[in-house]
Amino acid sequence: MNTKQDSEKGCATDTGSWVAPMAWGLGAGLAAAADTALFALYHLALPLRLALVILPVLLSLGYVTCVVGMFRRADELQRRIQLESLGFAFPATAILVMTFDLLEKAMVLPATHWGWGMLVGAMCLLWLAGYAMASRRYL
């Protein structure tokens, strides 16, 4: 049976709530990157250094609040998709880190110093990959 909008397979309006968390997350990441650069370039006074450390932490808390709110507002299918994507991203990140660590210890790969930025980046990318896979299942 062909009814109105049956051909629509995208879900643009349903994913609109991603914008705010992504903005907070991006803000936190940029603030942290700016902090790293500033700390490397300048010797700043202690109060200023502390203020600069607090800024990305506050932005990260905004991100967490936004994500939790997004999950609370999501309908049951969106919650399932998020659960499946996080269920993929969490162990996938652990496997990725473990694999790189073992490859470095086995001297197959040169030693890389995994900073938190790379770890968070991997988590976000794997979460997005998990979300794309889980979403596809219900299209």
């Binding site: 629509e8 879900c11 349903d14 049951e76 299918l77 219900y138």
Partner: peptide
């Protein structure tokens, strides 16, 4: 839904869920 001439969006709005949820239920994926 077709009998009522509602789109998936109409039904989703009436039920307070996303259109993707309606589509997934209709296609038996959820």
């Amino acid at each position: 839904r077709a009998q009522r001439d509602w789109s998936q969006r109409d039904l989703a709005d009436r039920l307070g869920v996303s259109r993707q949820t309606i589509n997934a239920v209709e296609t038996g994926k959820y």
